[in-house]
Design a binder for these strands. Structure first.
Lengths: 204, 204, 204, 204
DNA sequence: TATGAATGAGCCTTCATTCAT
DNA sequence: GATGAATGAAGGCTCATTCAT
């Protein structure tokens, strides 16, 4: 009896917390860490200022939670798409495609993850920065596997994985800022080709 | 009539202005626009708060000046290095090498230009964002020329120029954050190879 | 020899001081005590900021000097005009006419004396306030004399002298603010009539 | 949902708002717009600086509120007293008496309205200056009516209404500054007599 | 003496956080 | 728990005054 009640309460708590996070994400995307005041977040979430502090220890905690959540979303999207492929390069392609699609669907996720976070270096603590690099790490694993399997020639995969990710990030940032390239999916395919060539893959 | 603006006095004034800029650049690199308060800038520059306003109309003017200065430094370095080459691809390579070398020499320039500025979208006005994209534009010109001269196959140079720049940016950011790759110049050469292959250049 | 030199120097000093005062008067008239910064006064006077402090101990001293000067001008104008008359009421009329004419000629004197100063109660010290009331005192003397000579019935000349001056001040303030009455001299004559009747003078 | 805006709470809020206004009025009376800093107002009101901004959008809003309030008080006092009379001249007399009595009761209202505001020309916007002239307008209406009803001879009521108000203002200012005349109500009656004669009213 | 750069206290305002209700 | 008023440190900026030249 007691247990169920607690669960229900917990659910309500979680719902509120995620409402706050959603509000903060929107504000963070359109303004910045400093532009998103607690008061404005609370207002957008439909709660009182003080209530915010019942769900998050302070402003920093909120934004840590946001990054965590985003990271989970991203990883989730990637993992799901990857599971459909066996070949390392295909998995890699699938990963990037998953990212691009997610970013198209949730632009503020993109804006925050690609634009806002990198500059928040010192604001968000270092752990977050590591999280942010995760994509590179994932990429590197795929590349290493591909090399091992003879799909790619020997190379410094540390560098090439960074380069690989960098191409996508730059295109996405450009798209966020200028709306160009207008057809992001087509650009994505160009990018894949570019990178596969760069990696030395045998493309027919 | 006794207070003459002698060369000596003027020199001291200029020195002070650049001392302020230097202080602000350091703070901007390690914190952010908001983290670099006028008071902290003044303190770091060894002057009183009010003195700051003798050299810059307001905070925004200071940071505009910083971006201008940095942009000039960057363009200067690039132009100098490019003039040594004729071939479009060589010029492009030289450009990137110039950037990398400058960023190695002046790390806070790198940090601000690569990390801070992109997020300052709304703080610094749009002109500055354009400035920031300049490197992509320069790259695109080189690529177009290379395609025209048959050095590269036909391609969407809008996308590939962004990709090209993105690889460098990502590697540099990683290096700034983690100190890796330790040998940035070697990484640079890997990157060049990666991109040339990606572009479809004939590398023997 | 030395004496003459000193005189000349003194003259130059005085000239500068009065140049500063003139500048300050203009600024004081169009802005306010706080609006007239030392820097702006110095600039308008064509000197350096620091130079100001060679002629005036501080901002307060400057404005004291201004009031003194204005008071002298006012008293000078009044005295000159009064000397042409014998009858107390005529002298009084002449006094007010002198004031009105002076204020027409020098509007910023009017603005400062009638509008700015009264509010500076606490800024300018009390002596200045006394100066400002001087006109009432002069008027009272005339009224007392007129009563004594049977030109006016017995009355509380303390009150009536204040009332008398008040009518002029209010009309002048209205004129300064709104530009009305457009014909100030005609209004002046109406006012004289109003006040003479109010005083109980025999007007045919 | 527990924090209810009960009557008690609301009362406390209202009390605080008026406490702030009261504090500001006192400071404004003894100093000036610039002398009354938000910090000093807050201190005098017994609140923290930041709290001030929960009650007023900014400094200007506070002083606008003050002027509005004072104007309401003044108009209220006048209207109430006027309603007891029918004759235009009696209504006019009643108006002035109401003013004088109010000013006696609330000296800082007097100080601000008579002394501070006139000089604040540019600080408080023009609407406020209009408010300030309202008394003259009211007076003019009464005079026009009195002329129409044959209580007063034909005259330039624009000038005489200004003169009329001016006598009261000057006496009140003198009283505020010097404490004389000590018996303000008696002075008031002298003034009424003075002005009625000035206006050409038939006084027995 | 004249200059104008330098100073720093002080102003208005914002905002993360706390606390009485 | 929920509320929103209260807090006060901190930010950007101005300006009377001083001081090295």
């Amino acid at each position: 009896m007691v247990y169920r009640k607690t669960a229900k309460v917990q659910e309500k708590l979680d719902e509120r917390a995620s409402k706050i996070i959603r509000a903060a994400r929107e504000l963070l995307a359109e303004k910045s860490y400093h532009g998103a005041s607690i008061k404005s977040v609370a207002k957008k979430a439909g709660i009182a200022t003080g209530t915010f502090y019942l769900y998050f220890r302070n402003k920093e905690a909120l934004f840590n939670a946001i990054v965590d959540e985003m990271y989970a979303e991203l990883l989730n999207a990637i993992t799901k798409e990857r599971s459909k492929h066996n070949n390392a390069l295909d998995k890699l392609k699938a990963s990037m495609e998953a990212c691009v699609k997610l970013f198209i669907k949730e632009q503020h996720l993109a804006k925050i993850l690609l634009v806002q976070i990198p500059s928040a270096n010192t604001l968000f603590n270092n752990i977050l920065t590591e999280i942010e690099d995760e994509l590179v790490v994932l990429t590197k694993k795929d590349l290493d596997e591909a090399v091992e399997n003879g799909l790619l020639p020997e190379q410094d995969t540390f560098i090439t994985s960074i380069a690989f990710v960098g191409t996508f990030r730059e295109v996405l940032i450009t798209w966020l800022r200028r709306g160009e390239p207008s057809d992001l999916m087509q650009a994505f395919h160009s990018l894949v080709r570019y990178n596969l060539r760069g990696l030395g893959a045998q493309t027919e």
